[in-house]
Design a protein around this nucleic acid. Structure first.
Lengths: 100, 100
DNA sequence: TCGAACAATTTAAATATTTCAATAAATAAG
DNA sequence: CTTATTTATTGAAATATTTAAATTGTTCGA
């Protein structure tokens, strides 16, 4: 094991993150998390995105499965936060694709 | 027009790039471009990826449409290069999603 | 010009994703 | 315990993507 980064971010994980980011609604969710300073409840997203609750749930699952966001249970609610570490790893992966 | 960055990288463009990156075969293509030092011919990809020529062509189109790579015609061949500028813009977009 | 080599397009199929209605699960409040 | 609130799951339809065969377009070399 020579390259530590490769253990945290492999092509499979990068692919899953890319897929998670490959939907306009999911980008809106990420922007909203930023906007609300890492404090987004599922129920609030219904007001922002014109989708049914199960659809939003599905998109949140894509994002949490890729680990780009993390959901913290708070009673009945779930609070979503961006996983800055994973985002940094993903960015590092993209940087590694650059030539110079 | 107050924010210059928004003209170069908006959500729509970021979405297209995310989609372009959201396929394992396309990530392999990008890695191979890096490996060969920005000098990849379409015909070479057939040796690396087990797909028919039109499929590879399709994937290259996704990548070039998103502008993450650029194809330069060289006689009968097309030489593909990573568009470092667009990659940097995309990375900056991802950075902007981070909270701290 | 003709044929070979490389890339792009068209069309259709297989596969994957997105979406929502219905339902279930979990928890808070009364 | 019962009900209301919030989130998750299931199942099915609509839509999008991926793939390859067949074809077309381009360019090089003889």
């Amino acid at each position: 094991m020579t390259d530590l980064a490769s253990t945290t971010m492999n092509a499979k994980k990068a692919g899953r993150i890319s897929k998670a980011l490959a939907d306009p609604n999911r980008l809106v969710i990420l922007k909203e998390i930023k906007k609300r300073n890492d404090c987004l409840y599922c129920v609030e997203i219904t007001d922002i995105i014109d989708l049914a609750q199960p659809s939003i749930c599905h998109h949140l699952k894509q994002l949490t499965d890729s680990e780009i966001i993390v959901g913290e249970k708070e009673g009945r609610n779930v609070k979503y936060k961006l996983n800055n570490e994973v985002m940094d790893e993903y960015i590092a992966f993209l940087q590694s694709l650059k030539t110079e």
